[in-house]
């Protein structure tokens, strides 16, 4: 069974030139514009972002009642995030070590759990099939896509909201010299009945599969070439020797070298299988939105292409690839 993307949504803090960051930069997101005047005050920024992106992807208003009954039990949520608790955790820890336990306010308690943004999205929409949060740095967003595709194929849901949200840590010294920015993104996936049947109105292309690998370092610190080649083959297999495949690889600036190595490994494997990458000399795109980055790249590609592969790599050695494919074709 293949899947089809029936909706997307994103809220993104755009990187600013040096010197324009600071506390005022938090004003890029207006919660009331997305979530109405009430109901979000006690939600942390990652939760607010996620609700905004998730509602847009589902095409629902923020004040619509959650699903109930059978439709609720067939809707799932998967969320990628790496920093959902970082800011609030630091604030709560400061409170505990200065004021003591009495200084902890009830409203902020849920925000210390990594799953809270995803759980609030599940509560808001009535998603009762499952709500799972994946927390690997950088790759968590695309891992959520892989998870959702597997869950749909296993019959654990009929629709899944695949999402990612992050609030880049402010650090101890404020938000100067930032390399990471805030964002949330979401897409809605559902199973597509069969090749040949028409695509739902307004739907984008489909997701045909995903793969995650880890490329360990050897004792000399270099990435294991055998593991890298194996990852390239697995990713190339997602598109089965297709030609002119749009390939997008993104990773943090510090992982650019690893990203290039992955790009080359995929290109080589695809060539061996008789296929080709559209731009084999393409650059590795800088991932500046933490675990949301890969999902943003996927949504951008899905809006312009029916097929392609998006790969997200982390400095730790994780990589996740997701393949787009037209669900109406066999």
């Amino acid at each position: 069974m293949t899947t089809v993307i029936t909706g997307t949504g994103a809220v993104v803090e755009e990187p600013r030139p040096a010197g324009e960051d600071g506390p005022g930069a938090a004003g890029w997101f207006d919660p009331a514009a997305h979530l109405g005047r009430r109901g979000w005050k006690y939600f942390g920024p990652p939760t607010r972002y996620l609700l905004a992106a998730g509602n847009t992807a589902l095409g629902r208003r923020h004040d619509e009642p959650p699903l109930t009954g059978g439709p609720a039990e067939r809707l799932g949520v998967v969320t990628g995030t790496q920093y959902a608790i970082a800011d609030v955790h630091r604030r709560m820890d400061d409170t505990l070590t200065t004021t003591g336990v009495g200084g902890i306010g009830p409203a902020e308690v849920p925000a210390f759990s990594m799953n809270t943004p995803g759980s609030q999205l599940a509560i808001s929409t009535g998603a009762r099939a499952f709500s799972v949060t994946l927390t690997n740095p950088v790759t968590g967003g695309l891992e959520a896509v892989q998870f959702a595709v597997s869950a749909l194929r296993a019959g654990r849901a009929d629709r899944v909201v695949v999402a990612a949200t992050d609030r880049a840590p402010t650090g101890e010294d404020g938000r100067e010299e930032r390399e990471e920015y805030d964002a949330a993104a979401a897409l809605v996936l559902r199973g597509h009945p069969a090749p040949g049947s028409s695509r739902p109105a307004g739907a984008l292309t489909g997701i045909t599969g995903g793969v995650s690998r880890f490329v360990p370092r050897r004792a000399d610190g270099a990435r294991d070439p055998a593991a890298l080649a194996a990852a390239g083959r697995r990713i190339a297999a997602l598109v089965a020797g297709a030609g002119d495949v749009p390939l997008v690889v993104s990773g943090p600036a510090a992982a650019a070298g690893f990203g290039h190595a992955v790009l080359e490994a995929v290109t080589a494997s695809l060539r061996e299988a008789g296929g080709s990458v559209r731009d084999p000399a393409g650059a590795v795109r800088e991932a500046r939105h933490c675990a949301v980055s890969g999902l943003l790249e996927l949504i951008a590609l899905a809006r312009t292409e029916a097929t392609g592969v998006v790969v997200s790599v982390s400095g730790s050695g994780h990589l996740t690839a997701v393949a787009l494919g037209d669900p109406t074709r066999s």
Binding site: T133, L134, R213
Partner: peptide, 24 residues
């Protein structure tokens, strides 16, 4: 702040190269 790198640490230590995911 990067508290959720435990899977990468394990995968690197043991040379586990397949899908490596952290569930929270």
């Amino acid at each position: 702040p990067a508290t959720h790198r435990v899977t990468a640490g394990l995968a690197g230590r043991f040379g586990i190269g397949g899908p490596g995911h952290t569930l929270s």
